[in-house]
Design a protein around this nucleic acid. Structure first.
Lengths: 139, 139
DNA sequence: CTGCATGCAAACCGTTTGCATCCCC
DNA sequence: GGGGATGCAAACGGTTTGCATGCAG
């Protein structure tokens, strides 16, 4: 039964990964997080970071952001909220447009899918990329 | 000047890729499209498919869907519309909820980004996956 | 003590790219 | 004829996984 979160061990790695993720308001990729965690746990492996992020996402402790771009990003804030992704540098920020839960109902009415959730992703140019030539700052 | 679409050559490959993509209402991945095209052009390379999809997306002839999941998907319909992705099998369908362009304005008001666009992605279980154990049909 | 979790490294998979050849304009 | 486009295969980058060892419960 997946709705009962399996009791996870409280390993040092797990705690520190969660701490570091909670510490930032950005939405780091796995390897960004790996770099952050490695400062405190130099021998940690990248695989461990991936495994724990996956596990914590499954248990609803964190959010795996299914946004555009090449890398997945992670978020310690699990309440529904929307994001904006810079097409210049790829970074992702929160955007505080009100969440529209009724969208799900509207969608459910028009679809043969059993609608579970939704996400709104804006694209734009972040302040840092606006100066430098329309955000063609690669990636 | 990127806004002037560079005149593209009309190669057989390009035409057939576009034809095959236009033919389906699904949103195939590059390799699904590769398989479709290969039936008519057995010697085409996967790289050619990727290069042309990228090029046509840049020129606004098709849409590269920046949706969740591991693979990018392509869409011959370029008008803004929303999608739903099955968390069971990963397939993506159109959903005909009205497009809310004012979302962009709302977002722009609350952000330091220069907001360019938006996309709404629903997640759910497709009819095919609803029967078989809550859509744990892998991928 | 026992089995889940870790570190490490190799495997994987989707995508990109270098290069010689091809062919559209 | 010339430069962009192709086919092929190798490289790439992000993610996953197998295995021996380690450590939380």
């Amino acid at each position: 039964m997946k709705s009962t979160p399996n009791m996870m061990r409280l390993t040092t790695q797990r705690q520190i990964i969660l701490e570091e993720l909670s510490k930032v308001k950005t939405h780091p990729t796995a390897s960004e997080l790996y770099d952050m965690v490695r400062k405190r746990l130099p021998r940690i492996g990248l695989g461990t970071v991936y495994r724990n992020l996956e596990l914590m996402a499954e248990n609803g402790m964190i959010l795996k952001l299914e946004v555009g771009g090449t890398q997945k990003r992670f978020d310690a804030t699990t309440d529904t909220h929307y994001h904006i992704r810079c097409t210049g540098c790829g970074k992702v920020d929160d955007i505080d447009t009100p969440v529209m839960d009724d969208l799900v109902n509207a969608a459910a009415a028009n679809s043969s899918y059993q609608v579970v959730g939704h996400h709104v992703e804006f694209t734009g140019i972040c302040p840092g990329c606006q100066g430098s030539g329309q955000g063609i700052t690669i990636q």
